[in-house]
């Protein structure tokens, strides 16, 4: 168990002023059995009004509108969390598990994913393995055959395309592992979060078994531990975009994300 201080900063800079800007941000880590959010502070600039709600995946959302012209839109979240040293968290409610068993738009298994699954499931006792063991075997296999390289894939890249390209970032690792697990009918979900150190936000997955979600980080080929703070979850990256917006004007835009997590 550790106490972590986290700070998340997202800034969208517009080339031309933006206005009538509707936004939804999913950037608020919530307390669960694994992570206890002790303090938290959120600021959004600019805003005309904001409201809160919890979406169907359990994510805390802040949504609203910024009507007046603005050159940038910024979200800052900071606080302190007490995180248990376990990858597991109880899965509730049970009737919200089924939807994670089926391939989503970005996690459909094609030829490449099927081939990788065949390579991962060669052992004779495969059918006897638990869901987490199967997912771990898939993760190992993926880690050996895939390489981390930013700038090649994009936010809409599917698991199948990412695997075909052979390189990608944490989002792609997570999507491929989800596609592998779902091809095996294992319920699993995409997680957006932060991990120890300085950098960008991170993505990993959780696999369901016997009433618990277990976190696996395919980019680092390991189970998650008390270095990880979860922000949101969904069927794939589309369900947990940290920032979504619709606005007039704006021109070209540039997004910058800075995350820092350190021991408190």
């Amino acid at each position: 168990m550790r106490n972590l201080r986290f700070a998340y900063h997202m800034q969208l800079t517009f080339e031309l002023p933006a206005f009538h800007h509707h936004f939804t941000v999913r950037c608020e880590p919530a307390t669960d059995e694994r992570q206890h959010i002790l303090t938290e502070e959120i600021t959004i600039y600019p805003k005309h009004f904001d409201s809160r709600q919890v979406d169907s995946f359990g994510n805390h959302c802040i949504y609203g509108i910024a009507n007046d012209a603005h050159n940038y839109f910024a979200v800052d979240v900071s606080g302190e969390a007490k995180v248990e040293n376990t990858p597991r968290v109880p899965a509730l409610p049970s009737h919200r598990i089924g939807m994670f068993r089926y391939a989503s738009e970005l996690t459909k298994a094609g030829k490449k994913v099927t081939e990788l699954l065949e390579a991962a499931s060669f052992s004779s006792d495969w059918g006897m393995l638990s869901a987490v063991s199967k997912a771990t075997a898939c993760m190992n296999c993926l880690y050996d055959s895939y390489r981390y390289e930013p700038g090649v894939t994009g936010i809409d890249t599917t698991a199948e395309n990412a695997l075909e390209l052979g390189v990608g970032v944490c989002q792609d690792y997570a999507h491929i592992l989800l596609a592998l697990c779902r091809a095996e009918s294992i319920p699993c979900r995409y997680i957006v979060g932060m991990m120890m150190g300085e950098g960008a936000s991170h993505a990993w997955i959780e696999v369901y078994e016997d009433g618990f979600w277990t976190g696996l980080d395919p980019t680092h080929n390991r189970l998650i531990d008390d270095n990880y703070i979860k922000i949101s979850c969904g069927r794939d990256a589309k369900d947990c975009q940290i920032n979504q917006g619709v606005f007039a004007g704006g021109g070209k835009q540039k997004q910058e994300i800075r995350v820092s997590v350190r021991e408190a």
């Binding site: 169907s56 995946f57 919200r96 939807m99 069927r235 369900d239």
Partner: peptide
């Protein structure tokens, strides 16, 4: 036709 966004609404 199933929309996950409608869960719990």
């Amino acid at each position: 036709g199933y929309l996950a966004q409608c869960e719990g609404v």
